[in-house]
């Protein structure tokens, strides 16, 4: 399959808008607005972005939000802590489903 993800592909994101341009524009406006400083600071927002990028394991987002974190003056300690939060929540989300397994055991057992 060769290289499925390429460094330069993120810069080609705009090409997606060649089809369904109205929808793409709505997405871009929404994306841009959601990252503007609001009640949350820019720094908080890019950390959320980084954590989500790792939770969904998107290579483009990981590259982009790692750079954003550095441009907000953060370092590897900030970045690693955020990834731990994402990972812990992912892990916890699996683990908590043990309750469903236990419920199923109760349901089908005598």
């Amino acid at each position: 399959m060769g290289e499925y993800y390429n460094d330069n592909d993120l810069e080609r994101f705009g090409e997606v808008g060649k089809h369904c341009p109205d929808l793409f524009k709505k997405f871009m406006d929404w994306y841009g607005a959601s990252l503007q400083e609001g009640v949350l600071t820019k720094r908080e927002k890019v950390l959320i972005g980084l954590a989500v990028a790792h939770a969904i394991q998107c290579p483009y987002c990981i590259d982009a939000y790692t750079k954003s974190c550095l441009e907000e003056g953060m370092n590897l300690d900030h970045i690693t802590e955020a990834v731990h939060v994402a990972s812990a929540i992912r892990g916890g989300a699996s683990l908590v489903h043990a309750i469903q397994a236990h419920n199923t055991v109760d349901k089908i057992s005598m």
């Binding site: 820019k42 750079k67 550095l70 441009e71 907000e72 003056g73």
Partner: peptide, 11 residues
Amino acid sequence: HNPQGMFFPPC
């Protein structure tokens, strides 16, 4: 302060 690589400085 200057960035430690190919990215821009913070505010």
